[in-house]
Design a protein around this nucleic acid. Sequence first.
DNA 1: ATGAAAGCGCTAACAC
DNA 2: GTGTTAGCGCTTTCAT
Lengths: 336, 336
Amino acid sequence: MAIRLQDIANDLNLSKMTISKVLRGQTDVSAETKARVLKRMKELNYRPNISARGLRTGQTYSVGMVVPSLANPAVALMVRGINEVFRPASYSLVLSSIEGDDEMEERETELHLSRQVDALIFCPRSDASAVPQALTETTVPVIYAGTAPPRAAGLSVGLREAEVGKFAAEHLLGRRCRRIVYLRGPRTAVADQRFAGFREAHRDAGVSVRQDWIFETHPGASDYRSGFEIMQRLIASRVRPDGIVAYTDLLAAGARDAVIAAAIEVPKQLQIIGCGNVADLCETGISLTSIDLAHEEIGRRVARMTLKRIEEKGETAQRSVTLSPKIVERASTRAN
Amino acid sequence: MAIRLQDIANDLNLSKMTISKVLRGQTDVSAETKARVLKRMKELNYRPNISARGLRTGQTYSVGMVVPSLANPAVALMVRGINEVFRPASYSLVLSSIEGDDEMEERETELHLSRQVDALIFCPRSDASAVPQALTETTVPVIYAGTAPPRAAGLSVGLREAEVGKFAAEHLLGRRCRRIVYLRGPRTAVADQRFAGFREAHRDAGVSVRQDWIFETHPGASDYRSGFEIMQRLIASRVRPDGIVAYTDLLAAGARDAVIAAAIEVPKQLQIIGCGNVADLCETGISLTSIDLAHEEIGRRVARMTLKRIEEKGETAQRSVTLSPKIVERASTRAN
DNA sequence: ATGAAAGCGCTAACAC
DNA sequence: GTGTTAGCGCTTTCAT
């Protein structure tokens, strides 16, 4: 078995209490003793048993996180932001990826609670309608990341989704676009909010939105192909938009390639703005202006909120937060 | 605080031993008692404390994993494969993402050991030269995933890297390419092995490799731009290759776009094969034939190996495994 | 079929 | 500055 406090105590003819104190950096130990203990710990390659400590103190210094899919770059960024804050605080993140399996959401949540996590970060799918029941019954702090839960029961850090559509439209309207196609993505709450922002920007600018230039995409289907085909059809029917706002970068890329294939110049005759700011994708071809969804910053905020929440224990004075998206300009829209 | 075994025992006027037996599915409990206990557990929303159990049994049913970066789609796939196997076995994966910080490798590894993981899965960076010291000193089983460690000290599941270059070259050579450009990527051990496979295929086919058609890429630089610029320069100098093998899909995409911009037809006049099989990317434009690096399968194998290794405890009869990559045909190479 | 006692490795609260 | 005692929630072992 592994080395224990007791082993070191025996070696040094001390009580394990003294060793424990050194381990935790208490000050009421003589410098000399401390040095001896530290030295022996190194030699023996001692590693404290966190389960045992957790059992005793009621804290595990681990936080659970449930995400829809690790393959999602947005999630990867959020996780990076969280770790950035947790690491210096010596907290670890225990990740569960749901991979689209609804039922697993419930199971994994319970598993985390069994593991005595100090808090739980929950990242709802964008089409989620309910949260696992276990979340509503636990006394462990729960923080929602990305999207606020339908029934905003707890703390959350989210994005001002409406601004995504708004900023995108404003960007194009400010660059003289007047005939903007909107590839609005799926029928989800998030997409609806972004669309509302898109309309708002038009209203503010006194430009009307054409209902027949709003295109939904279908789950399952490839976004690139969808974007390509929608624009191909549109151009074939002699319609000449001067701007495209897309729900994803992949949609934007597909749309861009169809537009270019029709010998329409980007950004001169038509400007395009995507969403998500996926680096690899945005930098292909005529690089895509896109909207950064602030995932990493959301992660950092979530982490800070989580740590505070753990410290407080009881009621919290904290409030949910929403962040603004940011436009990242590239070649598919004009300099100004 | 949370509900404990003792609380249920008190409620039901039983000893906590009986409750524990029910919890673990022991058979020496009367059906009636069992039903009562189960019912009460549900009502109270009881969740066993895994730390306490782990302390007693020495098993935590959690496995640590250290990866270079979660943003890497290859890693995400491996994790998915691992979870697929772990889930039904009730094991959880505790992930640490290093994000390029060398020193963190050591710290996170130690942290995992402190957490009493039952095993540790280590996924070395492709340019790694050494593994954390903690790994060499521990008695916890360590399994390497993706690339075998430089000093193959333990069990690993890897890819036959040479076959990546070999299959790619064979694919093009079998489709009548005779003048193949190789975008070989960085100067790493993995890239070297793939290149060796590329040469081997040429040797077998009796076709010579042109030294001045081998291009390195530089870390930091965008692969898309690199691929684009290399091919642009090559074509400008009147060179006319009939095939391209690229170290990444992004390189392949850049090369493809440069080739097309020069009015060379893909795949008619020039065929391209990428590597990584990143779905989003391969399906843009003239879709890219690519090499699937079997990450998900590697994950599954790693997971099975890990579980077996945990079971055995002592010496193992298991051996390291390498898997073959697989070509995924798309539009950038000819049907045959 | 049920239960009592002991202890996993650690730390809080106290002596000394 | 150092040590003693007790106990976190669970399971192992052995009685009953």
